[in-house]
């Protein structure tokens, strides 16, 4: 397997249904002078899993025979949920986590102020209903919000758009 194949199989420590490639965190894998250089971009500034992602990548590549591995962090451009692949979105929904909607590039000009939570049509990952409401903008990890479905009454997590 090529280093890219190997790195693409490493899973996210906090959302193990996804690979780092699905999540859009894995940005680049190149070989320079025999050294595998992997570039990742953190999801949130305070994401505590970044260190573990780097360790997982090094460990997995070494196990596949690539001894010389460097993991680089790229801060710019900033990660966005738009980088989560279609495959990743499907896997999230199958795991009961509503995927984010696509938001496009950040608009120029002032950051808009939302005095009421923006109404997003988020489908319940269990029954598909669109009658869902946000319970809390902040969930079990930095990237998730908590919602509830009015039809099947189940609470569920939603990867919030950023």
């Amino acid at each position: 397997m090529t280093p890219l194949d190997v790195a693409s199989r490493v899973r996210d420590p906090e959302l193990p249904v996804l690979t780092l490639a699905d999540l859009g965190v894995l940005r680049d894998v190149v070989v320079r002078d025999g050294r595998v250089v992997v570039t990742i971009t953190p999801t949130y500034s305070g994401c505590p899993a970044v260190q573990e992602m780097g360790a997982d990548l090094r460990r997995t590549l070494r196990a596949a025979g690539y001894e010389d591995v460097e993991v680089r962090l790229s801060l710019s451009p900033a990660w966005t949920t738009d980088w989560i692949s279609d495959d990743g979105r499907r896997k999230l929904a199958e795991a009961g986590i509503a995927p984010p909607s696509r938001i496009g590039p950040l608009a120029a000009g002032p950051v808009p102020l939302n005095l009421v939570p923006p109404s997003r049509r988020v489908a319940c990952p269990r029954c598909g209903s669109l009658r869902t409401t946000e319970l809390s903008r902040f969930g079990s990890t930095a990237c998730k919000a908590l919602r509830r479905c009015a039809d099947c009454a189940e609470p569920f997590e939603h990867i919030k758009e950023i």
């Binding site: 500034s45 710019s76 451009p77 950051v111 939302n114 005095l115 903008r137 950023i162």
Partner: peptide, 20 residues
């Protein structure tokens, strides 16, 4: 510049939360 560009998106959530 990179920390600011990234942090801006996080702060937008913080400000909305406080404002609400």
């Amino acid at each position: 510049a990179a920390v600011a560009a990234k942090g801006l998106k996080e702060l937008a959530y913080h400000r909305d939360h406080a404002a609400q």
